[in-house]
Amino acid sequence: MRDLGAGFGYLMKGQRWVAQHGKQYGWGLLPGLITLVLYAAALVCLGVWGGDFVSWSTPFADGWTSPWQGLFRGFLTAVLFALALLLSVLTFTAVTLLIGQPFYESLSEEVDRAESGGHAPESGLSLMRELWISARDSLRLLVRAVLWGILLFALGFIPFVGQTVIPVIGFFVTGYFLTEELTSVAWQRRNREVRERLAVLRSRRGLAWGFGTPLALAFLVPFVAVFLMPGAVAGATLMVRELEGESEAQAPAHAQAPGPEAQWPAPHGQGWSN
C-alpha cells in the first residue's frame, strides 16, 4: 500500500513540476495534441465506415433474415469500435512518446538537471538511434498490450465477473503498461535495457500501479490525457531517479560513463525498499 501511495505521489510531483516550468510544459503539449488529432480522425473514420467494413467482412450473413442480420452485424460493429477505443487507451502513450521523443527527451533532461544541480544523464546515442530503440521498445509493449487487451475483452463476457472484476484488472494492467512506457524516456538515457527496466518494475509493482492506474483512468478522457502527458513524463523521470538511487546533489556515475559495468543500486538503497 505504501508503494501505491508513493507512485501516485510521483504523478502529482510531476504535474507540479511542469506547472512551475511553463516553457517545458508548453513544448510537452505538442506531441499529445498531434496524437489526439490522429486518433480522433481514425475513430471518426471507423464510426463512419465501420458498419460497411463489418458487412464486407461477413458475406455469409447476407442471406440472413431480419432482425438477425442487423443484430449480428450491429453487435460486431460495436465490438470493433470498443476494441478500437481500448487499443487507443493502451497505445496512446506509446504513440505520443514516439512522436514526441525529442520533446519528452528534452523535458526529462530538464527534470534531471533541476533535481541534480545541473547534471543530466546522456545515452551518447544519435537521435536516429534513440528513435529506433524507442520504436522497437514501443512495438514490444504494443504487442503485449494487445494480447492483454484481447484476453481482458474475452473475459469481459463472463457473467458478473466480466462486468465488475475484469474492468478493475484492466485499469491496473493499463496503468502498469503506461508506467513502463513513460519511464522508458528517462531509462533510455541511462542505457537501461528493457529487461532491466521490467525487472525493476516487477519488483515494485505497487509503485507502477500507483503511478499508472490513476493516469489510465484520466486517459479515458482524451483531452485530459494531452494535458497530463508532460507532467506524467516529469513524474516518471522523478520515479526513475528514485529507483536508480540518485541523489539530488550529483548525477550518477553511470550516467557520465555508461557501460556494461554500471550496476543497479544495492537492494538496501532507497530505490529498493518496499
Score class of each variant (00 low, 15 high):
residue 5 G to E: 03
residue 12 M to I: 03
residue 13 K to G: 05
residue 23 K to D: 14
residue 32 G to W: 08
residue 41 A to N: 09
residue 41 A to C: 15
residue 41 A to T: 07
residue 42 A to R: 00
residue 49 W to S: 08
residue 52 D to E: 11
residue 54 V to R: 12
residue 54 V to Q: 03
residue 65 T to A: 13
residue 67 P to N: 05
residue 69 Q to W: 06
residue 72 F to M: 13
residue 74 G to N: 11
residue 80 L to C: 11
residue 82 A to L: 15
residue 86 L to H: 00
residue 87 L to Y: 13
residue 89 V to D: 12
residue 90 L to P: 06
residue 92 F to P: 07
residue 92 F to C: 07
residue 95 V to I: 14
residue 97 L to V: 10
residue 99 I to N: 06
residue 100 G to L: 09
residue 103 F to Q: 11
residue 105 E to D: 14
residue 105 E to Y: 09
residue 116 S to F: 05
residue 117 G to S: 02
residue 124 G to T: 04
residue 128 M to E: 12
residue 134 S to R: 13
residue 148 W to R: 00
residue 148 W to Y: 12
residue 148 W to P: 00
residue 151 L to E: 01
residue 155 L to V: 02
residue 174 T to Q: 15
residue 175 G to R: 04
residue 188 Q to W: 07
residue 189 R to D: 13
residue 191 N to L: 15
residue 193 E to P: 09
residue 195 R to S: 10
residue 202 R to E: 10
residue 202 R to L: 10
residue 203 S to E: 05
residue 204 R to A: 12
residue 205 R to M: 13
residue 206 G to H: 05
residue 209 W to I: 03
residue 209 W to R: 03
residue 210 G to H: 02
residue 220 L to M: 14
residue 224 V to Y: 00
residue 242 E to A: 13
residue 242 E to Q: 08
residue 258 P to L: 07
residue 262 A to D: 12
residue 270 Q to W: 05
residue 271 G to P: 12
